[in-house]
Design a protein around this nucleic acid. Sequence first.
DNA 1: GATCCTCGATCGATCGATCGATTGGGCTGG
DNA 2: CCAGCCCAATCGATCGATCGATCGAGGATC
Lengths: 217, 217
Amino acid sequence: MAGGTEEQIRRAAVHLFATRGFHATGIRQLAEAVGINSSTLYHYMGTKEDLLFAITQDSFRRLIDAADRLSPDLNPQVRLCGLVYLHVWSHATHPEETAVVDNELRSLDGDRLAQAVELRDRYEGLWASVIADGCASGTFAVQDPRIARIALLQMCSGVAGWYSASGKTSLRDLTTTYAQMALSLLSCGRDYRTIERLLDDLDLQPVVAAAWPESAI
Amino acid sequence: MAGGTEEQIRRAAVHLFATRGFHATGIRQLAEAVGINSSTLYHYMGTKEDLLFAITQDSFRRLIDAADRLSPDLNPQVRLCGLVYLHVWSHATHPEETAVVDNELRSLDGDRLAQAVELRDRYEGLWASVIADGCASGTFAVQDPRIARIALLQMCSGVAGWYSASGKTSLRDLTTTYAQMALSLLSCGRDYRTIERLLDDLDLQPVVAAAWPESAI
DNA sequence: GATCCTCGATCGATCGATCGATTGGGCTGG
DNA sequence: CCAGCCCAATCGATCGATCGATCGAGGATC
């Protein structure tokens, strides 16, 4: 349960960056959260910004790895549900990490910001192609595919800000509800039970377990 | 065009808080943006946090004032389109101000955070009642009204982060597109032209002009 | 002369980061 | 077995820089 010091620092940083913000988090505050001297921090890490960069890179890569595992043979409707599932699942189970990625990218300097943006663009490209495929095949119908993509991603990312696993909504209900809303937004409404079955058949648990191994308890 | 010094400070603060973040914005940086000494700032304002608080309060009040002007006699479908219009319009025309409100509330201390949260809750309550009315009358059909409300607000707020008036999407197209997506998400899909006409008939320009007088050029 | 406005100087506090000193467990050569 | 050594790990002290904020000394305007 304890984990190495390096991992403790990482966890504390994710928590503090997510709740207070990167610039509002002091190096001493971080050290105190871990229970070590602020000097000792630098034995395990580089600069504070190195830490932020590592967090964002890891988070992005895991999400992209998971999304890349979705078979391109599936029809757009199913692929979109898969993307929504993975996005919502990751934001619900790792709310602080994803919040840091979504809100603190601007604290990175030029080079690293560019690297992060490149990963983000790659990820959003997966969404764009699914939506484009669906529009081409007549499964989806939207006024502007680009705006629809932005709206969908924004709405799914919001999960990190409010969802609590201790609430009355289960992770299964959450992901299904968002998948249903996403399809509806694309003028491709489906019955709730239908989507529930669709996601069951997709069976993304292996994908999730591969991309977030520490969550497979 | 110039405006008083106080207003220049306000504008510069909105810009810096939105782009760099509240904690990443220094008092000297703010003064430099205005073209005055950092000491002179304090002749026009209180603390840096006073400034942030004033910005958030003003922004919230204007949005609530506008939303309150929507007649409660209208049916849920029209009222929802009105809420979407005002929300998207304000986020598209005042992206920095709304971004500060959406992202920097956590930088307020206890008392002021509570006041801001109270206003936010009041505003979101307007959305909640419209959605509830629509669900009760059968106009809307969603699995979870609360989640739908959160998703809609999140998706509409995202406009502040990407929309550019110089792009190919007009403000009119933008608001109509979002209203259509919102209705679709609520299983109440309508034709694009229908929503366009609906918003034209609503004619929210007077509402907008009353809540954001400086935009009425 | 009184009021408004501005600025340089400066306050104490805190920032991120580095330094040298110390500790202690583990490895090596004999 | 043990003396000698190494090195990861930790900490107190401190670096220069910057933070938000204050003060009093001047102009400027009426």
